[in-house]
């Protein structure tokens, strides 16, 4: 019997894409677990592989190597037919609200879809449920008859979330789900997500690039760089306990509203190296101010610091 607390387990997952005659290393040897009622944040810059991980968990992208286990079932090599049924356990909410909707489908029909497809309930029954779902995410029933372009971005995102939870999934993946929204709306959606995760006791993977926002909705945060997780942190104490230089750079890049204008910005030199090249050493070595010889030739492993804190660095910041 699998451990009850662990819902999703990702073990040594890698993903390579063939690009012409080379290989693009999108995700390299990533492992983590997610428990019921827990929200894990995945933070990193564009191209670091966070969306690729989401797609692999959702099953819309095959893994190159490694295993993904949900509730004790390894599903990366499931047959297409079997997976079609299994898929309902993992639902996803995407970044751009408008493009997640077929422009010619009414909100009601959209909400009914999963129940009709998976559980073969009647259209009327599903419609009645859809109304309840709308209420759950704080939207009026009259939206059932509306078309996507008649709703605002925040409203659409609520509908997308409602649909995702309609079939009580075990895992909800939010891929930059608030990224396209205004800050006030962003907070509302974040709050709603936290409530739903708690209420339904599901696991949630919250992907984003805004460390401050991700921290506010999660219990743990994983920092990714160039296809690897470089640090796992506890959200609450993130700011005090971070040890990886890249996490420091991310924190330094946040412009606080109440910042001191005269203070110089700490800049991270250069840009992320190409994922087409194999790096022997630490992926962050080229941009790291604490880089040593060892960093260039040897890959630091994730090592346990304390509690849920792990860091992959030879010269972690001492505090």
């Amino acid at each position: 019997m699998p451990d009850n607390a662990v819902l999703l387990e990702i073990k040594n997952v890698s993903k390579e894409f063939p690009v012409k005659k080379k290989k693009l290393y999108a995700v390299s040897d990533v492992s983590f677990t997610l428990s019921r009622g827990e929200t894990l944040g995945l933070v990193g810059e564009s191209g670091c592989g966070k969306s690729t991980i989401a797609k692999m968990i959702a099953g819309s992208l095959p893994v190159t190597s490694g295993s993904i286990t949900l509730d004790g079932v390894e599903y990366t090599h499931m047959k297409k037919k079997e997976f079609a049924k299994f898929r309902r356990s993992i639902q996803m909410v995407f970044q751009d609200p408008l493009s997640s909707f077929s422009p010619r489908m009414r909100i009601g029909t959209y909400l009914c879809e999963p129940r009709v497809n998976y559980d073969h309930v009647s259209k009327d029954e599903a419609m009645a449920e859809a109304e309840e779902l709308l209420a759950k995410v704080g939207l009026p029933a009259e939206f059932l008859m509306r078309y996507p372009h008649e709703l605002s971005g925040g409203q659409l995102q609520r509908v997308a979330i409602a649909r995702a939870i309609a079939i009580s999934p075990k895992i909800l993946i939010c891929d930059e789900a608030t990224g396209a929204l205004d800050v006030s709306i962003q907070n509302q959606i974040a709050k709603l997500l936290v409530e739903l995760v708690e209420e339904n006791n599901i696991g949630c993977l919250f992907i984003g690039h805004d460390l401050a926002l991700v921290r506010s909705v999660t219990q743990r945060v994983a920092i990714m760089y160039l296809g690897r997780i470089v640090e796992f942190l506890d959200s609450e104490t993130l700011q005090e306990e971070y040890m990886h230089p890249y996490t420091e750079a991310l924190l330094d890049s946040i412009f606080d509203v109440h910042c001191d204008q005269d203070e110089d910005i700490k800049l991270l030199a250069g840009e992320a190296p190409s994922p087409l090249v194999v790096h022997n050493g630490c992926p962050f070595a080229q941009r790291c101010e604490y880089c040593t010889e060892q960093c260039r030739y040897q890959l630091p492993e994730l090592s346990h610091v304390n509690g849920t804190h792990y860091v992959a660095c030879f010269n972690p910041l001492k505090r």
Binding site: S60, A84, R87, S99, S100, F101, S102, E113, P114, N117
Partner: peptide, 21 residues
């Protein structure tokens, strides 16, 4: 488009995706 991806997650069959989406 993302909504095709969404449809798949919503359990729509290929035929349905073709006809409805």
């Amino acid at each position: 488009n993302v909504y095709i991806e969404q449809a798949k997650m919503g359990g729509a069959s290929d035929w349905k995706i073709l006809m409805v989406y």
